[in-house]
Structures are given as structure tokens and as C-alpha cells.
């Protein structure tokens, strides 16, 4: 297994470079440039700016320079947030996004998976329909609707009651400020997890080996937990891999509405500003996360189903 992990990591390196390369050239191919949005500047100043940011050289030269510095961990200066390097911006924002994402992920697993199991065990009952109704709503309502609604309820209507919650921002850094953003972020994942868990649990309960376990006279609880659950977790893990990568890199909508200084907003703002280096930085980060999470998922498969073996040739 260890040799498999090492091999996969080695394969991930060229994949990573392909993604970064594609992103580099796609950004440059987009019309406009980083300094177009500002008031028209005299050609001499523009030329100076372009020279300062290394944009005056041929594209291939720029690419080579960028890659050499990136390998050394230097993502260059941000074009928009002057005085900041991309590395600094990510170092400031990433922990905030990652903390919220991690909390949302844990919340989603803690609620979504048990709800899905409960629905599967009571398939086609009222509880099942209620749970799946909420799940459908969670998937259908976009978070730019959910976030203001939650703010309206918890920050405005419930103001001066014990249920009042701050409408985001880091405030004094207390946990209370994180509740609404984390909940908003996790809602759609709770809903997806509940639906996936329910479907795969129903499937697992129909397996012949579950019938064998029941014929052995085991209590139904241990039939479910010991025999069906592990099998049912395979699709859930498949979903959780990329979901984790997305959650940890933050959400533009949630961070904007709750005024959180994470990195989620950089994906969209950076692209709109043609802030080449910033976009490259956040893309590299999320690409690396997705590559790692995919590996984690594949390793988890081998744990969940011993028939999956990577070591044999």
C-alpha cells in the first residue's frame, strides 16, 4: 500500500503541472489584462507597470519564469492587492476558509450520514419522506438565498432573544460568529450526504450477505452496523473526496455574504480582476487538494472493501 501511495503521489506531480500550465495560458487567453480596469494610464506608465510585473516578456518566457519561481514556493505578487504577495494572501485567508470548511464537513457527516441511514432503515415511511423532503429542499435552495434567510431569522427576527446569532464576520473571533456561515456551507452537503447514504444503505441491505447475517440470528442493529454499513460507505466516500477539497478552499458566496476574509472570494474576484498570479495561486492550491483527496478516497476503498487491492501487479 505504501508503494502505491508513493507511486500515486509521483503521478500526481505531472498532473499538477498540466493543470497549472492550462490555467496559466487560459488566464492569458482571456481578453483584457490586470491594469485595464483602472483609469487610463499614460503608455509610459503602463509599460513600466508591465515591466515591473514581468508582463513585457514573451509569453513562453513568462511561463518559464513563473514555473521556476512557483517550484520554489513563490507565487509572485498579487496584481490587484498591491503590497501583498499571493503567498501572503493565501496564508491569511486559507486558515479561515479551511476552518469553516472543516467544521462544515464534520457537521455534514455527523448529520447527513445518520439521517440517510435512518431514512434507509425506514424506507418509504413518513420519516423517510420527511428527511428526503428536507434533503431535496437543501439541494434546491442555493446558498445565496439560504444565507440571507438565515441572517434574517437569526440576526434580525431573533434579535435580543437567546437564539440571536451574529451575521458573520469574524467579530471577536468567538465560535458564535462561525455558526451561521458553517451551517450555510454545510447545508447542501448534509442534503447530498443524506441522499447518497440512504440510496447506498438501501442497496447494501438488499445484499445476500445481509440476509446471511440476519439468518445467523444477529440483532438487526449489528447486522446494519457490522455487515451493511461499511459496504454502504463506498459511494459516500466517493462523494466526500472532492467535496472536502471544495469545502476547504472556501465559498465565494458564503464568504462574501458573511464578510469572511477567506480565500473563496479570490477565485471569482481574482478572475474578474485578471489578477493572474492570485488565480494561479488559488487554482494550484485547490488542484493539489483535489489530487490528494482523490488519493485518500482510493486508499479508503481498499479499507472498505478488501477485494480492492493496489499492490498486486
Amino acid at each position: 500500500m505504501l508503494s502505491y501511495i508513493v507511486r500515486r503521489l509521483l503521478i500526481a506531480i505531472p498532473t499538477f503541472f498540466v493543470i497549472v500550465t492550462a490555467c496559466f495560458f487560459l488566464m492569458r487567453a482571456a481578453p483584457g489584462g490586470p491594469f485595464d480596469a483602472e483609469a487610463p494610464v499614460p503608455p509610459e506608465i503602463l509599460a513600466n507597470l508591465r515591466a515591473a510585473y514581468n508582463l513585457d516578456k514573451p509569453l513562453v518566457q513568462q511561463y518559464a519564469d513563473y514555473m521556476v519561481r512557483m517550484v520554489q514556493g513563490d507565487f509572485g505578487p498579487s496584481f490587484k492587492y498591491k503590497d501583498f504577495t499571493v503567498t501572503e494572501l493565501i496564508a491569511q485567508g486559507a486558515p479561515i476558509s479551511a476552518q469553516n470548511g472543516l467544521a462544515a464537513l464534520i457537521l455534514a457527516i455527523m448529520i447527513g450520514v445518520p439521517v440517510g441511514i435512518m431514512a434507509a432503515l425506514n424506507q418509504n415511511s413518513r420519516r423517510d419522506y420527511t428527511a428526503m423532503g428536507f434533503a431535496m429542499t437543501g439541494i434546491a435552495v442555493p446558498n445565496f438565498v439560504m444565507a440571507p434567510t438565515l441572517i434574517l431569522i437569526f440576526a434580525i427576527w431573533l434579535k435580543d432573544t437567546p437564539f440571536q446569532l451574529p451575521a458573520g464576520s469574524l467579530g471577536d473571533g468567538g465560535v458564535k460568529h462561525r455558526i451561521l456561515p458553517v451551517f450555510t456551507l454545510s447545508l447542501v452537503y448534509i442534503a447530498y450526504l443524506a441522499r447518497i447514504t440512504r440510496a447506498s444503505m438501501i442497496e447494501a441491505l438488499r445484499q445476500n450477505f445481509v440476509r446471511t447475517a440476519r439468518a445467523k440470528g444477529l440483532p438487526y442493529r449489528s447486522v446494519v452496523v457490522r455487515h451493511a454499513l461499511k459496504n454502504a460507505m463506498i459511494p459516500v466516500v466517493t462523494f466526500l473526496g472532492p467535496a472536502t477539497a471544495f469545502l476547504l478552499t472556501g465559498s465565494m458566496v458564503v464568504e462574501t455574504i458573511y464578510a469572511l476574509p477567506g480565500i473563496g472570494r479570490y477565485f471569482v474576484q481574482g478572475a474578474l480582476n485578471r489578477d493572474y498570479t492570485l488565480v494561479m495561486g488559488v487554482t494550484a492550491l485547490s488542484a493539489a487538494l483535489i489530487l490528494i483527496m482523490n488519493l485518500v478516497v482510493d486508499v479508503a476503498y481498499a479499507y472498505l472493501d478488501p477485494r480492492v487491492r493496489y499492490d498486486q501487479r
Binding site: 445476500n208 450477505f209 440476509r211 446471511t212 447475517a213 439468518a215 455487515h227 472493501d305 478488501p306
Partner: peptide, 12 residues
């Protein structure tokens, strides 16, 4: 049961 391939729990 009939099918010993699928009647034993694969992960145990």
C-alpha cells in the same frame, strides 16, 4: 444459501 460468492460479507 445458494451463492457463496455473495452470501458472505466481503469486508469481514
Amino acid at each position: 444459501f445458494q451463492d457463496p460468492m455473495t452470501s458472505l460479507t466481503p469486508h469481514m
